[in-house]
Amino acid sequence: MALTEIPMRQSIRFLKTADGVTLAWAEAGEGPALVKVANWLSHLEYDWDSPCWRHWMHFFAANYRFIRYDERGCGMTDWDVGDLSPARWIEDLEAVVDKAGPAEPFILLGISQGTAAAIQFAALHPDKVSHLVLYGGYSQGWKFRENDAGRRAYEAIVELARFGWGQDNPVFRQLFTSRFLPDATEDQIAWFNELCRRTTKPDIAARLLQARAEVNVADYLARVRAPTLVIHAQDDEVVPLAAGRRLASEIRDAEFVQLASRNHILLESEPAWTRFKEILLDFTGRPPGGARAEDPVFQVLSDRERQILARMGAGESNVEIGKALFISDKTVRNHVTRIFEKLGVSSRAQAIVMAHEKGFRGSG
């Protein structure tokens, strides 16, 4: 994680859709616009500081004007909405683009089911999209896949959501969430479980899941003209690798990258996350680690010290850093002392200023 990957703030705003839904959207960062289509389950505030999504959000905002939104039915967007069908996804994306007004053409990112609306938008508005990036996605939901066992398993998960989602005991939600993050720590799984509970209601969770099963944008694949990058974790337990390969095979000249991971949501600590960042920056023509070269002075820092210096630059306290990195407050203090010694500074403020002025890139 680089220091430049930790913007200090995001701006959250609201818009009203054509059918009267109050939809929450946010932006952060500077540079070429990157619009992320909404995906399961999001909350503009909770995601920003979560151990599962934080590194994603801050990486995008460090390198782009990053625009995202909560889909209807969850997060800071209206929950009690009549229509949660896939047909509304493209309309909501168009509404966000119209309100945010990104410079065109812009980069469009679809993650998981968000790839469906991204594909449709790119096909319908070829002049607006400079690059299309699809991660962990699919063009058809379980309703249209030739896999009876997978379809029955998905239907069972929908019913579990309907009856067990809101219970204090997380066992029902964990049957679902553990598929997204099979390599996560207990704390990360607990956080993701809590995100799910706090961002929607049981009946809406079931309806959102059912809507995913009804996705079908297969007819739009051949109509996409933007340069397209398809990325997929090879052992993804939520969306099978075959779904990603189909996207790449049916979108003209699409580039396909397979990552060595089991996680549908890539974790900050795994090599696949570093690879994802490198691929995305290269594909969109962004310089790795920012435009400035890093000063050699930072080469004396260990990987852990680089992580801590990056988080210091974000304004985090020792306690907050310890919680984020799963180490004690005392251990953080010891690392901070060594950082000061190695950089020849005597205070936190001096270390942060040096990092900014000398192009510190963090841990990568």
Rank of each mutant, 00 (worst) to 15 (best):
R68H: 12
S42A: 13
E155V: 04
P287N: 07
L124V: 07
S328H: 14
E186H: 04
G289T: 06
E316C: 13
G75Q: 11
E71F: 05
L93P: 10
G166C: 03
V96P: 05
V224A: 10
L221K: 07
M312D: 02
L309D: 02
D47R: 09
F326M: 13
A272N: 09
N39Y: 13
A103T: 14
E159Q: 12
D83Y: 13
L23D: 05
R145G: 00
A156H: 08
R338Y: 06
I308A: 07
E270T: 07
E104M: 13
A242G: 00
V319W: 14
A38Q: 11
F298H: 10
F59R: 09
A233E: 03
E268T: 03
E45C: 07
I339A: 10
F256G: 02
G313R: 09
S328L: 10
R292N: 08
E250P: 00
G322I: 08
R207M: 03
W89L: 11
A122V: 04
A355V: 10
Q167G: 11
D19Q: 07
M8V: 02
R198Y: 03
D92P: 05
K16R: 15
E146Q: 13
V97T: 06
N39Q: 09
V158T: 05
Y46I: 08
L259V: 07
D80I: 08
H232W: 05
V96E: 05
V217T: 06
D219I: 00
E186S: 09
A206S: 12
E91L: 14
I352E: 12
T337Y: 14
G73M: 11
F180R: 01
D235L: 09
I12Y: 07
S139L: 02
S363I: 04
L209M: 14
R145F: 01
A117L: 02
A226M: 04
E237M: 13
T17Q: 08
S302E: 15
G31H: 08
I339M: 08
D127V: 01
K36N: 10
K16G: 02
R65E: 03
L175Y: 04
S302I: 02
R151C: 01
L267H: 01
W191S: 01
T331Y: 12
A153M: 14
A122Q: 06
V97N: 04
L266M: 05
V238A: 04
S85G: 15
Q167R: 15
L325R: 10
V319M: 04
T22C: 07
G150H: 13
S363E: 10
F144M: 00
G244R: 06
